[in-house]
């Protein structure tokens, strides 16, 4: 694999940039990570908008308000600690989703009906 030799905007090379040695990894004292969901208006579902760090749920909501609703993007906020979210394995997507692909009879367009029929 060839390394990237050309550097773009916002991508300044470390080796020619007078970079110091990598910082040693210290034990993390980061606040936990939270996922933020926002309801943009009454009648719509909460939608994932991003994540942030906060010491607790209240702080997560306050920070979410400042970070994700500065332009009236929301009227309700959910936060959940990221570690509580379980995700499906992307490598298992064949087993999980393929069975749906050959069940085309689940779609209304599968059924051939006369054009004259109304309201269906």
């Amino acid at each position: 694999m060839q390394l990237i030799r050309k550097f773009y905007y916002g991508d300044i090379p470390e080796e020619t940039g007078g970079a110091a040695k990598p910082a040693s990894t210290s034990s993390s004292s980061d606040w936990p990570l939270w996922e933020v969901f926002i309801r943009s208006k009454q009648g719509l579902e909460h939608k994932h908008v991003g994540s942030l760090h906060a010491a607790d749920a209240n702080m997560a909501i306050e920070n979410a308000r400042d970070v994700y609703t500065r332009r009236s993007e929301g009227i309700s906020i959910w936060v959940v600690e990221s570690k509580h979210i379980k995700t499906s394995n992307p490598e298992a997507s064949a087993e999980l989703y393929e069975p749906a692909q050959d069940k085309i009879y689940r779609h209304p367009t599968f059924y051939d009906l006369p054009d004259e029929i109304k309201h269906m």
Partner: peptide, 10 residues
């Protein structure tokens, strides 16, 4: 943040 402060990250 450590990388920024140490000058490693630009």
């Amino acid at each position: 943040i450590e990388d920024l402060h140490s000058g490693r990250a630009k």
